[in-house]
Simulated assay, not measured.
Amino acid sequence: MTTTPKLSVLDLIPVRDGQTSTEAVRASIALARLADRAGYERYWFAEHHNMPSVASTTPPVLIAAAAASTERIRVGSGGVMLPNHAPLVVAEQFAALEALAPGRIDLGIGRAPGSDPVITQLLRISGPTADVDRFPDHIADILALLSPDGATLRLTSGREYAIQATPAATEVPTLWLLGSSDYSAKLAAELGLPYVFANHFSGEGLERALELYRSGYRPSEAHPEPVTFLTANVVVAPTAEEAAERALPQLRAMARLRLNRPMRPLETVDQALAAPRDSDAEQLIDAMRHRWIIGDADAAAAELRTLATRHGVEEIMVSPVAGARADEPRDAAPGREQSLTLLAEALAA
């Protein structure tokens, strides 16, 4: 039986040539409002640093803005990169978000730094934040700090010291572990937590990660059964030709990243189409294109249904990576809006 999945959104807040951060963020908040109206399940912001084409550096700030601009959709992080932050700070930020939008906050946590080694050192210049080798302990700390009962710290004097992320919590964010390797799948299973594999980023190892998570899952009070969904890069347009053109700027940007070339703001569709041929980049683009969902609404919906059925999931989080044309407004994202609208309509039909 074919599954029609629920839809969610992952947003990196792309910044294109000639666009300011203000315009890029404004376009993404408008996209969150559209997703809310269109019935999407959740809207997550990623954490990346020092990338000219990505403005999603601070998920808690963006989540607060999106929560204030929407009504029913869940909003969250996809994810907070825990090695860059103290666990107490993360717990306090998301406890505050839960107070702002009760029952609508997701805390997705990853183990990678989300940037290059230089930026990683800058993020930790004031001293240790979260030791990556103690990642499981820090996850347990955040869970305890977010709970209404809080956590207890035993001081060297032997005295116990009570700590709470917020003084009077009634609800807590849903904590998800994110990853692109076996590590987080195994840890999420051990802790009885929801888990998401970063399929949009890599695609390699998806089947193994899901099998490890499901087969090793230990039921928890909050999650008696394993909870997971898939992520996918998606470009949807009225025609397959337009979808292919709108996918090109992001495909070329990913090729530059993997070839270790200098990063820059995303090209417009016009710039990408006019760019000289590059055989090294084109080989990578061809390989990536087959893993992305690029096409008209009916074809994209069929691919998503197949993907959900094949991997036994009831939800797919799409990263709408459609590029913009040079004559389109800089404070909006018509191509990404088109992708979300057409996809929701096709799956609902």
Rank of each mutant, 00 (worst) to 15 (best):
L340I: 13
L31M: 10
H223E: 06
L146R: 06
I63L: 08
E225K: 15
H85E: 09
A169N: 07
L34P: 06
A344S: 15
P136I: 08
N84D: 06
P276T: 01
A274R: 05
S53F: 13
A322S: 14
L143D: 13
A95R: 01
A326F: 06
H223V: 08
I109F: 04
S181A: 12
L88G: 09
P148F: 08
R124K: 14
D182Q: 14
D296V: 04
A162V: 14
M81E: 05
R336I: 03
L97G: 03
V313G: 09
T70D: 02
A209C: 15
G295T: 08
D11E: 14
R33Y: 03
P219E: 05
T228Q: 02
L7T: 04
E204L: 15
S181C: 06
Y43S: 06
Q271T: 00
L62A: 12
T156Q: 14
H49V: 06
I293Y: 00
L34A: 12
T2M: 14
V54L: 12
G110Q: 04
V25T: 07
D286G: 08
P329W: 03
A185R: 01
V61D: 11
L31S: 09
D106C: 08
A308G: 09
T231R: 09
D182S: 15
D36H: 02
P265R: 00
P320M: 07
N233D: 13
A308N: 06
P262A: 01
